Simulated assay, not measured.
Amino acid sequence: MRLKPQYMFVIALVGALAIYFLVRSVFGGHPSTAEAKPTAAAKAANELPSVQVVAVPEAVRESQVVLRGRTESARTVVVRSETAGVVAQAPAREGSFVRAGTVLCRLSVDARQATLDQARAQLRSRQLQRQAAQELAQKGYRSQTQVLEAQAALDLAQAGVRQAEIALNQVNIRAPFSGVFDKRDAEIGTYLAPGQPCGTMIELNPLLVVGDVPETEAARLRVGSPATARLVDGRMLSGQVRYVAQDADPQTRTYHIEVAVQNPSMQVRSGLSAEVRVGAGAGPAHLVPISALVLDTAGRQGVRYLVGDRVAFAPVTIQEETPQGVWVSGLAGPVRVITVGQSYVADGQKVRVASAR
């Protein structure tokens, strides 16, 4: 029986394909080991966690300690009476600026002027007696002892005059320094005993900006360090640290700090809230995205970065937050900080760096 031509063509095609696959399986059908290895390596690389990083250079920056504070008068003194008497005049206006020596309250003079006049008359009498004794002693009519007694009486009279002058001057209760007469405690007609208050004086130039720093920051502060304060209304004050406490508050474990600033116009009042920034010296710092900050298993705040292709963690201290990122200390040299995926990798883990989208 003779096959049709179309059947013969199909049989020939099938035979050719069979011979092709047989030859390929014998001479080159299995991939070589060299070809298989890259495929496995690529597969393993694709299974590594993917992160994105940013290169952050090291910069030298003036570090600062930031704290909340308030303005405070440099001195606050309750001015008190040194003698007894009724307030006869109150020349200083409450809330006004007064210079040192200005009379705040004036007591009635009473008999103090008469006492002074009597003491001065006694002094003139003693002066004459001493002069007469000296002249008579020169003529031999007085002994040297009598001259010394006259001199002693003269000295006593001079002390009496001084005492009467002080008593008379004490009716004027004066400002001990230049400042604001902030509060009046005694009005005209008020009887003041020794030690009772006339009013309160406050000194606003220089002005103090005070606050409390945590024990972790106190060691960085020094007397004389530059400082700035931003008030609630936006005004800026500049000054220097004048005091840092050496003993912590037992309740808050913080240290009190005082910054002295100039306030010549005395427009800045006492008691205003302020943000205080105190210079703590220059040092290395890095500007990292705020989103890169993470917590490790011990609860420390820091950043994760790459050493080669493995993850490392470094605890950092925040120096300042800016619109561009956060200035931190605790890193060394240029660092490749992980910015995406840092919360899903662990220290020492090998990762794959993906390009940023």
Rank of each mutant, 00 (worst) to 15 (best):
R2K: 10
G15C: 11
A18K: 00
A18W: 03
Y20N: 07
F21E: 05
G29Y: 08
E35N: 11
P38S: 08
A40V: 04
K43F: 09
A45D: 12
N46E: 11
L48T: 02
P49T: 15
P49V: 05
V51P: 01
Q52Y: 08
Q52K: 06
V53F: 02
A55T: 12
R61P: 00
Q64M: 11
Q64G: 11
T71L: 00
E72Y: 09
T76A: 05
V78F: 08
V78H: 01
V79L: 04
S81K: 08
S81Y: 01
T83H: 05
A84C: 08
V86Q: 03
V86P: 00
V86W: 04
A90E: 01
A100Y: 04
R106H: 09
R106I: 05
L116M: 15
R120F: 02
Q122E: 14
Q122N: 13
Q122A: 15
L123H: 06
S125D: 12
S125W: 01
Q134D: 10
G140Y: 10
Y141L: 13
V147F: 07
L148S: 12
E149Y: 07
A150P: 01
Q151S: 08
A152D: 15
A152S: 14
L168W: 03
V171T: 15
P176L: 12
F177N: 02
V180G: 06
K183E: 06
R184H: 04
A186N: 06
E187R: 10
A193H: 07
P194D: 08
P197L: 04
G199F: 02
T200C: 06
I202Q: 13
N205E: 10
L208F: 12
E215D: 15
T216D: 14
E217F: 04
A218V: 15
A219I: 10
A219E: 13
T228P: 00
D233V: 08
G234M: 10
V241I: 13
A245G: 13
Q246W: 00
R253I: 01
H256P: 02
I257Y: 01
S265L: 06
M266F: 00
Q267D: 09
R269A: 12
E275C: 02
A285W: 01
I290M: 00
L295N: 14
L295W: 07
G302T: 11
V307K: 03
G308T: 12
F313M: 14
F313I: 05
P315N: 15
P315W: 10
V316I: 14
T317L: 13
G325V: 12
S329A: 14
G333L: 07
P334S: 14
V335S: 05
R336F: 11
R336P: 00
V337H: 06
V337N: 02
Q342M: 13
G348M: 07
V351A: 11
V353N: 04
A354L: 01
A356S: 10
